[in-house]
Design a protein around this nucleic acid. Sequence first.
DNA 1: TCAAAAGTGTTGTGTGTACACCCATGT
DNA 2: ACATGGGTGTACACACAACACTTTTGA
Lengths: 232, 232
Amino acid sequence: MAKDRVDDDKFDITKLKRPSVTVDIIIFSIQESDLKILLIKRKIEPFKKSWALPGGFVWFDESLKEAAERELMEETGVKDVYLEQLYSFGDVNRDPRTRVITIAYYALINPDKIKLKADTDASDVAWFSLKNLPKLAFDHDRIAKYALKRLRWKIEYTTVAYSLLPEKFTLTQLQKVYEVILDRKVDKRNFRRKILSLKILKDTKEMTGDVSHRPAKLYSFKSKELENIEII
Amino acid sequence: MAKDRVDDDKFDITKLKRPSVTVDIIIFSIQESDLKILLIKRKIEPFKKSWALPGGFVWFDESLKEAAERELMEETGVKDVYLEQLYSFGDVNRDPRTRVITIAYYALINPDKIKLKADTDASDVAWFSLKNLPKLAFDHDRIAKYALKRLRWKIEYTTVAYSLLPEKFTLTQLQKVYEVILDRKVDKRNFRRKILSLKILKDTKEMTGDVSHRPAKLYSFKSKELENIEII
DNA sequence: TCAAAAGTGTTGTGTGTACACCCATGT
DNA sequence: ACATGGGTGTACACACAACACTTTTGA
């Protein structure tokens, strides 16, 4: 056993038969009070006409994160959004063509940026509610499920919620983000007391206008650094 | 942008210039009341004679986890231990030879299994305290640091501690696991009250013998399934 | 004046934290 | 008898959960 220890160094690493490496991205956003992800309809086999996560090969001269950023830009036209590595999936037969290992990322996009989706062809790119996903290509169901699990954790224990909201937002909007992601109602008074006690919000001194009910205060996050705090 | 969407399908994926893929493993165990990891001294360039994490190439016909299990077996002779994917590291120049993406795993080994290390050559495989790590090869410092962070989180919020202990253990041993990993003292009475209230331990009705002080009750975990509970 | 969302407090319950002494055993 | 780790309870502070009505605006 010990003798195999340096096996790696015995290979000519330029000749070894190598798996392919891709990145796939789960792009989350909140639209119509619902949590959605972006999917793409495949045009070729395998899984032709199935919906799949956006993704593609990692180039030889770009890092994993750069590959994910590039894919994100290609699919949505957005950049500088929250993007975090999720997990790597490497089962031998997850792609029927050949051995493909994928590094999954997830992105959070706020409504200000989403307008850009208009320039994609609506018939083969679409947002789907997580409550109503079609059967996805490859092992993408599993990946999407895992991403949702991570997002739920992340929103409870960090300040990522800012990535899903516009710069300025009301406490009710913030609460809705929590309710939609966690898929449960949250008590308004307790939520407000808790979130304000964390001192992570800044009162912008502005109010919502043009609403046919009482205007609400607008807040923004003091910091866009991701902080680890128990939020809810 | 949208037109690039199916770039992946335009490549002949058997010919694309591909990064190499390895797995590296951070193998944790508690020895001499200290948290240690297993390192290997490199015999060839680059980083010849530096200490590095055990690892090696992912074969074409094995999953990522199988590759990690194989490496673990090769280095330590153990199997059926706690093994979890940590993160994937893919900076372009992390290996000076060529493009190498590594999927890092971490393993937790209990003292019952560790005897096996004897059959490795002591001069090029060794356990190092995390408080006293040498400078590691490649980006392995960063990987080890990240693994420790994950382990700290994991032990606070799940029942993984069982993986670092023998089948039967005393409450003091369990507490020591927490203290060593979290690197802080824990109050004995509060710890015991908390851990017993979680109902995850079973009283084996046995006691430690042959100790020159009052014997202690031996406990075991009711379940070896990993449970997500706030432990401490 | 109505509809719609904004905003606001109190109380009970449970949980975390701080803290010190006696017990059982082997040498 | 002494050294060593095993084992136990209480009090206070704080956080969480449950719960309903008044306010402000536009239509």
